[in-house]
Design a protein around this nucleic acid. Sequence first.
DNA 1: GATCCGACATGGT
DNA 2: ACCATGTCGGATC
Length: 885
Amino acid sequence: MVIIELEDKITEIVNKGDYHEFIYEILEIYGTPRATITRLKKGNLNMSKKNDEVHLKRKVWFKRVENENLFSVFIELERNINSQSTKPRFLIVTDFNTLLAKDIKTDEVLDIQFIDLPKYFDFFLAWKGIEKAEFERENPADVKAAERFARLYNVLSKDNSKIDLFLVRLLFCLFAEDTGIFRQLSFTNSIKTLTREDGKDLNDFLKDVFRIMDIDKKDRLNDLPEYLNKFPYVNGQLFSEPHQDLVFSEKSRKLIIEAGELLDWSQINPDIFGSMIQAVSTRDNRSHLGVHYTSVPNIMKVIKPLFLDNLYKAFNDAYDDDFKLEMLLTRINKIKFFDPACGSGNFLIIAYKEMRRIEINIIKRLKEIRGDYLYMPSITLDQLYGIEIDEFAYEVALLSLWIADHQMNEELNNEIDNAVRPTLPLNISGNIHRGNALHMNWKNVCPNDPEDEVYVFGNPPYLGHHRQSDTHKSDIRRIFQGVRGNGYLDYICGWFYLGSEFIQNSNTTLAFVSTNSICQGEQVAILWSELFLKRINIHFAYQSFKWSNSARNNAGVTVVIIGLTAYKTEQNKLFTSYGERQVKNINAYLIDGENVIVRDIKKQLYGLPPMLFGNKPSDGGGLIFEFEEYIQAIEKYPYLKKYFRKYIGSDEILKGSYRYCLWIEEDCYDEIKDNPIISDRMNMVKLNREKSKAKSTREWANKPYKFKQISPFHKQANIDLDSYTIVVPAVSSESRFYIPMDLVSNKDTILSNRVYGIYGADIWILGILLSRMHMTWVRAVAGRLETRYSYSSGVCYNAFPIPEISQKRINLIEELVLEILDAREEDGRSLGEIYYPSNMPNDLLLAHQKLDKVVDRAYKNRDFSGDEERLRLLIELYSKKVNLR
DNA sequence: GATCCGACATGGT
DNA sequence: ACCATGTCGGATC
């Protein structure tokens, strides 16, 4: 449940009048499982045996009071708490008129009227595992209020079809009454006092108010009532379109009034609009693109290196020279700022505000030098350009630019005497175009002549290839026409491509926040060889960091920031978690180094045995048995035992656990198909495959006893069951220095589609894969799941350069692998555990270090200075090998 | 037929 | 809710 909804639910409970179930209902909305509550009601879990008390271990001690003094009961319970073996988190005593509560951990006390309980919903958030301090830090008041406004959107959209323009007008009015454009709260108060509580006449009222704001004062009727006439004339087309009739209810009217009273709109910033759009969009099924707004700190990471730092440097250089300062004003007057995926406009707002501040600084300095200086606006909204696909976000963007303008006018007014820009009438709010940026010619939106100074920035939508719709796909296919592998590109690549074309033959620079996927694994070769063909240079970059903003339900993605120029420079800035540094070149992996690109190669480059993909059930879980399920099945039907195999994926390798899978040969199916467990499972697989989106899966629905994809190893005529397989977990945590690979027996094991296997491989190959040389390679070129290693045979194994290795060294490597395996076994804990750097047993670490050294020596006859040197050598070897082919 | 990835997915606390 | 850390199966070539 969304936190803000707790308040509503508690209101329901409090208004009920029947409080027999009160504490159970409260516990339930804070996430106590139903089963626990049932057992609590029956008394099993109730630590207190008195019938007016409910005491749930570690959660609550509740007492209902009738004819006693509330406080003395409360103090009595408080005293008793220390004699309990486990303390409840909360103490609650109530007679349903007054409620007393205490948070035992923080010692905070609540003493309130019972009906006010909804307002204090956050007091009990610890039940949901959220400590109060965290809640307040993570959810600034304005974000909470914005979510409240988003609820208005949802309530209204239930009764009405087109509400976007109305909401934008409403936002304007709320902003205006908080910033002196209207009289303080005059809009909200008018609604409160002049309209009916049931909301029935609100539409007529708003229609009149909106209409009047489109009429110049001097054209208004003389006998216009004061409640209408007090609203000013607002031009700029915001109110020129007639109001479309809407249906309001008591609830929506209340939400509008609350929005006016609870939120200070004068302090508005992109977080408010951004989280509002995000909250609105996640409710219904609108397009999810363009709804992730970028936080202000992250916007600064983009625009500072892109232009802000330079402009401040120019300001400092001109500081004592009034002529140069005037030149700088002339320069900033011409700059264009372009966000081709602008959402609610937050990048543009921040860029605009920062530019206005530069202007203020320059004017102030000019006044100091000259004694006086006549203020003329140099930065205006029409220098802003944008494209947005979502209608509501687009409307909000127009409004929020105007609001930013107003805020900066105020700031200017406060900072510099006699420098005034009028707030009304509204100016046209920038050049924001509505539509799909990948269908547009960007130069039609934002003209870019060679002598222009233009900055392109933003946070375009990301979508991996297997989640794209047909429209997304055709956009990317069209833009990357003729590019091999274009079907694998993320949706954001469209912006990078059009952006790289936009900046050709100009000094224009560009920077986007992007998913880190485009700088890792298979996409690197496809996207970047195409961009580098256009002589694109990465002039600054932030390496991977976790995405976050103030809204709830943050997107789960790790991002990078990439700045591009269309000309070559050796002054490039790389931001890593250790800080920033100047480098000669930033490559497609966002690493300081040459522009190498490692391709996903299908065949082992050095003649080693192939690394094969595991077996994919595509079964909806029907073929897979948890350990207990397996035991139950074979206890009931012992003859089933021979149809099971151990089933191993990454998780199992790392945790040292097993699951089991059904592994039924085609001609054996008849023997067991009537067994109830089997037929049950077969049905499950069949149904699941039938409803699959993929045709290839549906085609397997009538062979439910079989995995959909079976590794070639198992299709051989004579399988050597005594052989072993090197198993590499495909996904594993980056906090481990070595990916814990292992050997498993082929006798009874089936590998899942989340591990790779080298079947029947020599042990020394495992030694190569476990070596620091290989891990250095993997860390540099492997794909990632966020930041986890995402191993793949094509990039990590097939392309990995392997030198000539003498038999003597091979023997040595083999010995050391055995030493590693011994050390693992001796420790006994799971591989996942012992491969944590802090957990690694000494002899295991030692064995690894010995192995690292022996493998290092196969590449170079002296010690490496570090991993950078290792990587440089590997890349050199790779380039040589690939060029030879 | 064989992958490689995920504005992720899910269990643990 | 957050944190840690790897499932599962679609879509592609």
